[in-house]
Design a protein around this nucleic acid. Structure first.
Lengths: 263, 263
DNA sequence: CGTGCCAGGTGCCCT
DNA sequence: AGGGCACTTGGCACG
């Protein structure tokens, strides 16, 4: 059975339900609750309707009716316990390191379900910084004619250089890549690497290039005043076989079932 | 009615269910699905069991059985459409800016619920950077004897200074606060502000202090080599009335119902 | 483990 | 709308 559920369960049935499915299924509670959290920070949340999700890996999410982010949570690896107290159901999640305690006072559960969530597929994502790195190593002249990339993720005391290379005049070239619009922080990061290299190899022999699809105004100003350079480059989205397949299927079906309309 | 649900719905009932509750209730689908996303990046996710959550504000989450983070999502403000295609249910979410399209091919819905999620309470959180700012303004000698904070969030061309002040010798003092262990990036940030101030007021008249509970090794090294300073300070967790109340209640109840045990 | 840093980061606040 | 940045950031990869 994929899904078990209880509608408006009494507290006894709820406890048994949790006991049966915890650490095995994803448990979802549509509930009225309040939340206390104490850990890296500390928070309280008064009584209201929320969705509680408890995953088999110990992660716990409490969602409000808005936004992508949970209002409270505990990451995977946390351990769950629960008890009845004065006819209220209390869920406690404890994270060991750093020590964080989350406590949910559940006043009412409108609906509970447990989902034996079987999933053997991983996300296949493209268009990230790593794809930019690959692209530049395959085709270095995207940076400039004569650019020779030497190593990626090159470690120095002040951080990790995305791509280290040399230009046609044998100057060191430090690339800092950003998959999205680069900001002040990106410039500071590049500057930090360049300054270390300059202290080692001399002012004249080191260049720093920020590689990104665009720049904020502040970043551009700082970049110029620091004699750093900018190269416009957008992260590539690789052709994904599956994506194509699904889209094709999609299109084929469209021809057959023309009447289908988006609602 | 707080919660409506369908167990193992056929596709027609499912469509009506969605039509009835979308943009009004939080809809949760326990489903087998695949996902295509194209926007800032691009991804595919093959068939598997996942939890789909659609909130009234247009945010959409697709959760696997692990981790705190959704595997795919769309933030609030996105618009949802859906249709039947070859006996499969397809959900499409479109975000306008930046343009991002998410498409879920739903092969099977094991269970669907819609939750009229009424919530008038906001999270009350303490222990954040803002609390550190307040603490320092209330008690400036936490930084050092004679420190005078002058303004918070002081804007300069290269960013925003957390706290700007003067020391007892009338030097400018720039504080960069971190609520958690400070890293290389924190030092770079402070350095960026300090360098702007030095270029305006001269080398000798400007100090930079990183204020945080601790430092990474790399950050400490960089800080020292840049003649910046460190002041150990941990963000305060304010006494939260509600938290106390709940804990007290909790304790009182414990005395009454001693037999309750954590499971 | 700590260090460093990317992320489709998200969300908040300010101009 | 763009900028700057905090976040209980989470998550990953590497030493």
């Amino acid at each position: 059975m994929k899904v078990h559920f209880l509608h408006k369960p009494d507290i006894k049935n709820l406890v048994n339900f949790i006991k049966e499915h915890i650490y095995d299924s994803v448990i979802i509670l549509l509930s009225r609750c309040s939340v206390i959290y104490d850990g890296r920070a500390k928070s309280t949340l008064n009584e209201g309707d929320r969705i509680i999700m408890i995953k088999p890996d110990g992660s716990l999410l409490i969602h409000k009716n808005k936004k992508r982010e949970p209002v409270n949570w505990q990451p995977s690896g946390s351990s769950i316990s629960y008890k009845i107290e004065n006819k209220q159901f209390i869920i406690r999640s404890i994270r060991k390191k750093p020590r964080e305690v989350l406590e949910i006072i559940v006043y009412e559960v409108y609906h509970a379900c447990a989902f034996k969530c079987e999933d053997y597929e991983e996300l296949n994502l493209t268009g990230s910084e790593g794809d930019m790195v690959d692209m530049i190593f395959k085709n270095p002249k995207l940076i400039e004619e004569g650019f020779k990339p030497l190593s990626k993720e090159y470690q120095i005391p002040t951080g990790i250089i995305d791509i280290l290379g040399k230009d046609e005049n044998n100057n060191w070239v430090i690339l800092e890549l950003k998959r999205r619009r680069a900001d002040l922080q990106s410039v500071s990061q590049l500057k930090r690497y360049v300054e270390y290299f300059k202290s080692k190899y001399g002012e004249k022999r080191v260049r720093g290039i920020l590689v990104a699809p665009s720049l904020t105004t502040g970043a551009l100003n700082l970049l110029k005043s620091e004699n750093l350079e900018f190269k416009k480059l957008t992260p590539p989205k690789k052709d994904q076989t599956l994506s194509k397949k699904l889209n094709k299927k999609h299109n084929t079906i469209n021809k057959i079932a023309i009447l289908d309309e988006w609602l």
